[in-house]
Amino acid sequence: MKKISVLLILVLILTTMSLSLFGCNNASSQDDALQVGIIQLLDNGAFEDMREGFIAQMRSHGYSETQLDFDYRNAQGDMSNLNAICQEMVNSQKDLIVTIATPPTQAFVNMESDIPVIFISVSNPVGAGIMTDLNFPDKNATGTSNAIPIDEMFKLSQRLTPGMETYGLLYNTSEINSVTTINQAKEYMDTNGLSYEEAVVTNSSEVQQAAQSLVGRVDALFIPNDSMIQSAMPQVSEIAKEAKIPVYGSSAVMVASGAFATISISDTEIGQLSADMAHQHLQGTPIEQIPAVVVSSFTTVINQTTADALGIELTEDILTNAVFLD
């Protein structure tokens, strides 16, 4: 038994070592297809849309399957695996790395490899240490920031449902994108004489009670670009609808799941924008010359069913300019 154990352990070590070395040497002599690694921290609808949007857009730019090969890895919520995935990508010498959300971007940039990074939807790239200035990428990484246009969001709220004074803030404290956006929202509300109540969650099982705790205390709900709340939006919107509280979300997906309205860009679109930047780089522009993009093309998206349930009358001008989902 001892001998078998020792033998197996040696086999394990030698296999990993040789595969690792093999990966090093082999990558450059592989077929002409460009190797693009995609790194995601965990699974949820938002990240999926971003990834698929990116891939679809790349294909439509003309990179067929023989020209560009995607290697998609998901750490499944385990940060230690994230590090291992980054190491593996460097080891196999990818031509381009695409990271979704903040932690994978940070982990890869920290590896300080030569491989360029396009990031999708990091709401505060400078704060995350990924670049010093949005316009001059200096750490071999550039991409899209899905910073939510706070003032536009509140202006929308005043237009569609005037008279809201107290907003309920529902978000997941573990997502830095949410925290950043919420902080900006609070700043805006403080300067504009609005008040707010917060309900935070750390786990999807807490969402229902958090939402319920805000009923009766607030006039409207504001949900930032939070992937956990987005996944639980059907629940949240039911509770809000019953209490006649309009929910202002941060993505079209949220509105499709029952939130009242939003003024933002879809996750798929963000993925597509990032693909455009990747295409620009693959065509020859160096990363330092591709400034990070804070996404600003906004569509007003409204859920008709929710509007009806809340008894909200929509003006002519809104009806013509907004996109309606039910």
Partner: peptide, 20 residues
């Protein structure tokens, strides 16, 4: 354990969600 994970990562036989 880390070597085992590295091994799992290097195999391209399985889709991404199968890592764990």
């Amino acid at each position: 354990y880390r070597l085992m994970i590295a091994l799992a990562l290097q195999s391209n036989l399985f889709p991404a969600y199968a890592l764990k």
